[in-house]
């Protein structure tokens, strides 16, 4: 069975030569407004628009791939896709496993969000964060009890149903949730600056691809299109380059 399948698939692809360079862009698709899957079942958001523009400038043919956050780095190094563009902060730990381009999103504050009038403390209470994020690392080091979830949405749901006292996440992700909660949810404890901004993750063995994206990001920074794109998605007073 297994051999048959392998043989059939090997044969069916044997005659197809590799032509244009197709770059597969890996994203999470669950972190609005950075990246999400819209109701047409397409990847949408700031990073979709940015990624398409970067590919255009770099002369690459790009397709979008959705992958769970948990396994997004392992599946990059395994070669399932060629880049990670998923609101991933550039950190030293990740840099040991993959390479990052220069940042395409400036260092941006994170914030705690809690139910209005809740008594819990962000310093000693139960704080939710998404697994393997810099926010989770920060909570673990802060002395609060960390509860981790696989998706950003589940961290917010944990606060709503009282499982956690607060959630720590990127402020730009929490802002619309607070605004649309009708006063039920509030930001508490002020801004927390974490990380050095977001970069595209690429495999360490493909230096050429990294250089192409670096050049494209530089050109978007230079002509101001990156800043106007950030303002479009995150409001006029968002931090820019």
């Amino acid at each position: 069975m297994k051999k048959l399948i392998i043989a059939a698939i090997l044969a069916s692809f044997a005659a197809v030569p590799a032509l244009a360079q197709t770059v597969r862009m890996g994203t999470e698709g669950a972190y609005p407004p950075y990246n999400f899957i819209n109701d047409k079942n397409e990847v949408d958001g700031f990073e979709r628009q940015l990624g398409d523009e970067l590919c255009k400038r770099a002369g690459l043919d790009c397709v979008w791939v959705v992958n769970d956050w948990d396994s997004i780095i392992p599946n990059l190094v395994a070669g399932n896709y060629d880049t990670i563009i998923a609101g991933m902060s550039i950190t030293a730990e990740r840099d040991e496993v993959i390479d990052f381009t220069q940042n395409y999103f400036p260092p941006d504050p994170s914030a705690y969000m809690a139910l209005k009038g809740a008594a819990g403390s962000v310093a000693s209470g139960v704080v939710a964060a998404q697994t393997n994020t810099i926010q989770a690392g920060h909570v673990a080091a802060s002395g609060a009890t960390l509860v981790e979830f696989a998706t950003p949405d589940e961290t917010v749901a944990a606060v709503r149903n009282g499982e956690a006292d607060a959630v720590l996440a990127d402020k730009a992700f929490l802002d619309p949730i607070v605004a649309e909660s009708g006063g039920e949810l509030v930001l508490i404890g002020g801004d927390v600056m974490l990380g050095d901004g977001f970069g595209l993750g690429v495999r360490e063995s493909v230096g050429a691809l990294k250089a192409k994206f670096d050049a494209a990001i530089s050109s978007m920074k230079a002509d101001g299109t990156l800043n106007s794109m950030i303002k479009k998605w995150f409001g006029a007073d968002a931090s820019t380059f």
Binding site: P32, P33, D44, D153, E154, P176, I177, E180
Partner: peptide, 10 residues
């Protein structure tokens, strides 16, 4: 999962 108005059907 809960959807904000970034989606067409919040």
């Amino acid at each position: 999962g809960s959807k904000t108005s970034a989606y067409a059907y919040p």
